[in-house]
Design a protein around this nucleic acid. Structure first.
Ligand code: FES
Ligand code: FES
Lengths: 150, 150
DNA sequence: TTGAAAAAAGATAAATTAGTCTTTATTTAT
DNA sequence: ATAAATAAAGACTAATTTATCTTTTTTCAA
């Protein structure tokens, strides 16, 4: 469905939105641990997210780390996908034809168009903050570990 | 969205369903040309499709080639995806968590579940023959070439 | 103004996917 | 029986994606 890069990008962004703020910046080690992702690889992905679309903000040095601005929180989830170059899921043909259009549809186009429209809706109408809010709720998780029963 | 293997598998299967039959078997070169796919790679994929799920049938030797049995034509499109090991699209979590379930949902699960259900519907309720029929219609295409204006 | 803490950048490695080529086995027709 | 046609199988290469490690730059605080 999505690439590993995109998956980590989404999980990392959600985690930063949930736990981070301008005066509580999060380190890469904390983030990678929290979302069960390979640390160095995640660092690369966060670099993309800071460079593209201004999804994530960062500062170096002591007390540095990653956080999201208020503006970034309002961005659609699609912005995250775009930042890692993975929005093909809502633009391309299911059968891999070079173009997906009404004028030159593949045999699945008619059926897939509705699903694609819903995928687009989901990624465009949902904001990063929306996901963070969702994530704050009881049983919602962004990693593979056992739920803490404490 | 799907891997190249899955895309070629679907296009090839549709083409064989459309143009082939038990007494008009199609050669790999014709198929690959017809669907704009790399010939040798497509051959490998057709091997998978003959081995798994009985999606395509083949015979070697002169007048050999690929075709679909009547039973195969009735198979759901999902059978093609399974045959190439690519049905994750309707089973996995969008965020890449190891399991996708109501009891341990990710922040996108609630929204995605509906879309996933529709994807599953599409791949399970649509048969290979359905796609071939669709493909027989006027403007429907399974390659990237210009429509023949003759 | 120096040292340490952090991310950025760059270089490399490993794994997976995509693609090609060669050889073998099977089938048909002569 | 033999030759030719064809897919199957296997070996290999190339490209891309995923992952790790090292060095550099920036920033803060002592
Ligand atoms: S042309 Fe294939 S999905 Fe639109
Ligand atoms: S848990 Fe992520 S989509 Fe179901």
């Amino acid at each position: 469905m999505l690439s590993k890069s995109a998956e980590y990008a989404l999980r990392a962004t959600i985690y930063i939105a949930l736990k981070g703020s301008e005066d509580n910046k999060l380190g890469i080690d904390e983030i990678a641990t929290a979302i069960d992702s390979p640390q160095y690889f995640t660092a690369k992905i966060l670099q993309l997210l800071t460079k593209n679309n201004g999804v994530v903000s960062s500062v170096r040095g002591p007390n540095g780390g990653f956080y999201l601005t208020d503006a970034a929180r309002k961005l659609p989830v699609r912005a995250v996908l775009e930042a890692v170059g993975e929005d093909g899921i809502i633009t391309k043909c299911v059968l891999g034809l070079k173009e997906c259009s009404e004028s030159r549809p593949c045999p699945m186009h008619e059926q897939y168009r509705y699903i694609k429209a819903q995928l687009r809706q989901m990624f465009e109408k949902t904001s990063i903050q929306d996901l963070a809010n969702e994530s704050g709720k009881g049983k919602i998780v962004i990693n593979n570990r056992q739920i803490k029963t404490k």
